[in-house]
C-alpha cells in the first residue's frame, strides 16, 4: 500500500486561547527572590554533600535529600562560557536579528557549585574572566534584580 496522496489537509485555524499560568515558585525560590530584592544572593546547601545550589534547589538530586541550609553568596564569580547573541526569540517565537550582538554568560559565583545564566557587558570578554553583579537600579521585581555582570577590573 502506498501513501495516499489524496489524503491531504486543507487550511488551518488559529487557536483562540492564549493560556496564562500562575506558577508557584516554591518556598526556596521565594526566599531567593526576597534576598534579591535586598541585593543579597542566597543559595541552598545540601547538608549531606555540601553542594551549594544557585538558584537554590529544594532537593539535592545526588543525595536524594532535601536541602536545609542557606548560605549568602558573594557578588563575584567567574565566566565559565559565554555566547554572543546575534538573534533573540521574538514575540512570534521566531529568531529576530539584534541590532548589536549581546553577550550571554554562564557564571559560576564564588562559593556556589551551579551556574547562573545572565547578560555580560564587557569589551573583551573571555572564558575564565572574573566578574561581579551589576544590580538593577530600578528593578520591577526579583527576576530583573540582577541586571547583568561586568568585569572586576
Amino acid at each position: 500500500m502506498k501513501a495516499d496522496e489524496d489524503l491531504q489537509n486543507v487550511g488551518r485555524v488559529g487557536l483562540p486561547l492564549a493560556p496564562a499560568f500562575n506558577w508557584s515558585v516554591g518556598n526556596w525560590m521565594e526566599q531567593f527572590f526576597d534576598g534579591l530584592k535586598e541585593r543579597k544572593i542566597m543559595a541552598s546547601k545540601c547538608g549531606l554533600c555540601g553542594r551549594v545550589f544557585l538558584p537554590p534547589r529544594m532537593i539535592c538530586e545526588r543525595c536524594f535529600a532535601k536541602t536545609e541550609e542557606w548560605v549568602e553568596i558573594p557578588e563575584t564569580g567567574t565566566v565559565e562560557a559565554f555566547t554572543a547573541a546575534h538573534v533573540r526569540v521574538g514575540p512570534d517565537g521566531e529568531l529576530a536579528d539584534l541590532p548589536e550582538p549581546q553577550l550571554i554568560a554562564l557564571v559560576k559565583h564564588d562559593e556556589a557549585d551551579t551556574l547562573l545564566v545572565a547578560g555580560l557587558v564587557a569589551k573583551n570578554a573571555s572564558a575564565g574572566m572574573r566578574v561581579r553583579v551589576v544590580w538593577n537600579e530600578t528593578p520591577s521585581g526579583a527576576l530583573d534584580a540582577i541586571s547583568c555582570y561586568e568585569p572586576m577590573d
Binding site: E80, A81, F82, T83, A85, V87, V89, L95, I104, L106, V117, A118, G119, A127, L143
Partner: peptide, 16 residues
Amino acid sequence: RGLLNEVSAAALQANC
C-alpha cells in the same frame, strides 16, 4: 529571565 532558549543553551554548551 528571557536569555535562554534551545539555541542559546546549546551555544553555551558548545563554548564549554
